[in-house]
Amino acid sequence: MAGSGHAPLRDDPNVLLTIQDLEVEFPVGKGAVVHAVSGISFDVFEGETLGIVGESGCGKSTVAKSIIRLNDIKAGSVDYQGHKLADLEGEALRRIRPDLQMIFQDPISSLNPRRKIRDVISEGLAVWGDDRGSWPQDRIEELMTAVGIDPKYGDRRPHQFSGGQCQRIGIARALALDPKMMICDEPVSALDVSVQAQVLNLLEDMKERYGLTLLFISHDLSVVKNVSDRIIVMYLGKACEIGNADELYEHPRHPYTRALLASIPEPAPTVDPSDGDIEGELPSPITPPAGCRFNTRCGHASDICFTEEPQMQRVPGEDHYFACHHPVEVSVGV
């Protein structure tokens, strides 16, 4: 799974964000580094919802955080409407950040326990004043109502709310700055299943209403499938398959994608569940396997998979790209 190469990048005026050859490493002491993200390229259209799926530890959150520079980027570029985010520092970076807001995985931890939620939500306005101007202070209540929090609870503190409510408050805080793009890092993973749907609906609703572009990260394929227009499947810091959500779900070409899909418990599976056995553990990202990174667990791996990294290639005629030496053949008539 290599997934290097620029094949999935689209030359189109609607592109809002382009990531090229992004590499992120974290030192873990004694000179060792975790290769969290190793050369990933993709783009996002304005108004699109891009889903990123993969196992824990595959680097999907790191990609998200790299975009708004919450971690250091080792190499590669992040291009947002002509701004080279990877090269920005200090004040220039601070000025661009409100355009790209983030929703975090742990809703409780993402709110300061010592602040009233009204202050939490209006923090962006307090920071930027009239500079951005979209949500004046007196519209905070409107915003709270929009995300489903009664404004009369504005003086309460986060611990008095449930996880789902906290996530709504986090969404309101992000929306207050009228962002272009929302990066949702596992926004529903910590919530009860019954609340997940509510929060997902809210995100969709807000996306419609405020014309947002969403980057939606999750390890849960069924969640991602429901919200995404396009999906990236990641494995060990690389992209293995990128494509239109429906196309990718119906005709997965990469053995890993296929295995992931097969692992969703579904009454009427589109792939044979027996296809889906991924054996063994995720290899260490400190010493990732040579060649295709999936080779240690792939049933189709041959010699070339251990020596040569597969490049991204396009499925002819489709918005669908994969990186595999032995792609799964699409059975005719599916």
Partner: peptide
């Protein structure tokens, strides 16, 4: 994460420390 959120919002270091 609330400190990360403040950074993403664009709060300056001093504000993050104080608030």
């Amino acid at each position: 994460e609330f400190v990360l959120a403040a950074k993403v919002i664009g709060a300056k270091h001093f504000r993050i420390i104080i608030r």
